[in-house]
Amino acid sequence: MTGITQMLTDPLMQRALLVALLVGLAAPVIGTYLVQRKLSLLGDGIGHVALTGVALGWLVGAALDVVPNDALAVPGAVVAAVAGAVVIEVVRERTRGGGDVALALLFYGGIAGGVLLIGIAGGTSANLVGYLFGSISTVSTSDVVLTVALCALLLGVGLGLRPALFAVSHDAEFARSTGLPVRALNVAIAVVAALTVTVAMRVVGLLLVSALMIVPVAVAQLVSRSFASTMHLAMGLGTAVCVVGLAVTYWVPLAPGATIVVLAIVVYLVVLAARPLFARR
């Protein structure tokens, strides 16, 4: 018990837990729409592109002599992720749901661009590791403020526009026939997904960002019987695995991001195995 009190009174841990809690709550909201559209890998694609943004921010920061030299990394990631997400959405629309190869190009270009640009900026690939695998143990107060603001926006859009986002994700053709602004809503989903990627980057890193959006939804899918309950359960699960996973690393020297994702997958497997026991007859 004293261990938990000690953890909760550690300012560093307080900030990290708050960020993990918010990200765990918000990421599955957009993840539910991505799973509904069968675009589970979109978050990965955006994550790859965001890496180029990180390096680009670094490059601009170095050119402008900004201190510290990674101050523009997160804004760079936000810009690149949003731009990448919109490009993906446009390609998807133009190719009627295809664009598989175009997405692949974006994946590879994102990583290669990131590594290339960080070198030009005078850094090394090692500088990117924190962004690739998360760096929640170094969350600053300004990071917390940014996370709170972005998560509020994500939850506002994802929950507030749920009927409309559900409609376009479920049947875009019918949605268009009703007069709903389908393109604007599609772009909204893409932009919100991009912001989710950049806000979750801190917690689990760009390579695992998509897991936070998708795995809680996958677990909820196993037991839910409605869209609303899938989303709510996924939010609860996302919050739980983020907070518990991070707390574990307070005592056990494990990588927080990887611990959270592995924990989520373990929950998935346990629920999958236990599901027949509760099956409706």
Partner: peptide, 12 residues
């Protein structure tokens, strides 16, 4: 679609 939904949710 990719996520389960009730008939009421679809009709809404």
């Amino acid at each position: 679609s990719g996520v389960v939904a009730t008939a009421v949710e679809v009709v809404q």
